[in-house]
Design a binder for these strands. Structure first.
Lengths: 233, 233
DNA sequence: GAGGATTTGTTCGTATGTATT
DNA sequence: AAATACATACGAACAAATCCT
């Protein structure tokens, strides 16, 4: 194994990443199916055991299904666990960026306002503290024009909100949200000026959560997501 | 291996199911960590290779992380891929049914109305056909009082809608939706009478989708989910 | 339908590297 | 510094199911 990546990733993890990318990008498909374990073993120069462990990981993510003597079948896209951080990353890397952006926003429109509602009604004290501190950080970043930190600060705020919902399904969308928001603000260093006005919405949002005005909080978050929606048009 | 299940499930899959249940139910936890691969191998009477493949599947689902010399660590619940059908099933089997019902509905309130909106605006012809046929089936089931088929029919309808959204993130919540709806209507054979009036809402919903009145469709779905919400109070 | 080839399923033994004690 | 414990990785072998001839 190459001594560089082996420090971090195991061989099965490397193979998983490689095969996952090839499947999501469509290079392996029903017309060009995944080779047999033996062929993969020879091709990558690793043992069949390692290949098998990678295959198991991919099947656990819903990408493939291996049956006796039938080889490795690629499952229909509906089966893919696209909320899985790895699958999401591969989709982002190899898919149409434009289409993905649209679907990101569509999902955020559903999730974030509702999560905000629950954050305002059911958020614990430490949740609200985390939201407030994330807001303060964001405010500072914008005021000091630290463009390279803007994306991370926005992310931190939105993640704090969704965590405060205290619903495990919402909380499980943290990797999704992080990817969706990061992909929107990264590589656009001019985003701060146009978002100074968004800051007033963030302020309104935090106040609403603190005072448990759930409907106001929800609607304000909806406005914020709508602003992000306009960015991709 | 028992000759019964071995016809369907492989050994790694059996081990995955067993360990997954033990982790989700909390029998394995930071105070009582997962044994070493060697111990698991001896305990289940299977080879270490099979254990390793099961471990890889569980790590792909975000439940555990195995590091050299450190054994198998259970990851915090936030990392668990709870939208994964298996993880969801284990959570349902071993967790508090009441709490899960609440979180199911909270999630559906966010997802379903919005998905309905997109079904009305972006649904293809065959999507609408599927929705209509699911509605007709549901209508028939209610009229003929086939109580045992009611749950499946309701499910079919809601799944048809979410598929019509043509958004891969919404579509990926089909297993979630199926579990959430089934758990609500199963074991309650008296549910049909009280839901005859819900049928008028379903009818209104289908008409709205057919005529592309997206806002009406969305609001009607919100009403339907609200009805389900009242059932768990 | 009978039989051989293919491919995954499963096990075992061995060696290696890396922490902990 | 040495021993131990543990996960990582390899390779060989056989079993079992399915496909093709």
């Amino acid at each position: 194994m190459s001594p560089l990546l082996s420090q971090i990733l195991t061989i099965p993890q490397l193979i998983t990443r490689e095969l996952g990318g090839l499947i999501v990008s469509g290079q392996y498909n029903p017309n060009n199916p995944v080779p047999t374990e033996m062929d993969l073993s020879r091709h990558f120069g690793v043992s069949r055991s390692s290949i098998r462990e990678a295959v198991k990981m991919l099947s656990a993510k819903g990408l493939i299904d291996s049956k006796r003597n039938q080889g490795i079948a690629i499952l229909p896209r509906d089966n893919w666990n696209i909320l899985d951080p790895d699958v999401l990353a591969w989709s982002q890397k190899y898919g149409s960026s434009r289409q993905l952006q649209i679907e990101f926003i569509q999902m955020r429109k559903a999730i974030e306002p509702e999560a905000t509602y629950y954050a305002a009604t059911q958020g614990q004290v430490d949740d609200v503290i985390a939201i407030d501190s994330a807001y303060c950080h964001l405010f500072k970043v914008v005021q000091e024009q630290q463009a390279e930190q803007f994306s991370a600060a926005v992310c931190e705020f939105h993640l704090a909100i969704i965590k405060a919902s205290r619903n495990r399904f919402y909380c499980n969308m943290q990797p999704f949200l992080k990817t969706a928001i990061t992909s929107l603000y990264d590589n656009e260093l001019d985003s701060i000026p146009s978002n100074v006005k968004a800051l007033t919405l963030y302020d309104k949002l935090v106040q609403a959560i603190k005072t448990h005005r759930a409907d106001v909080a929800k609607n304000t978050m909806a406005e914020l997501v709508e602003l992000d929606c306009e960015r991709i048009h």
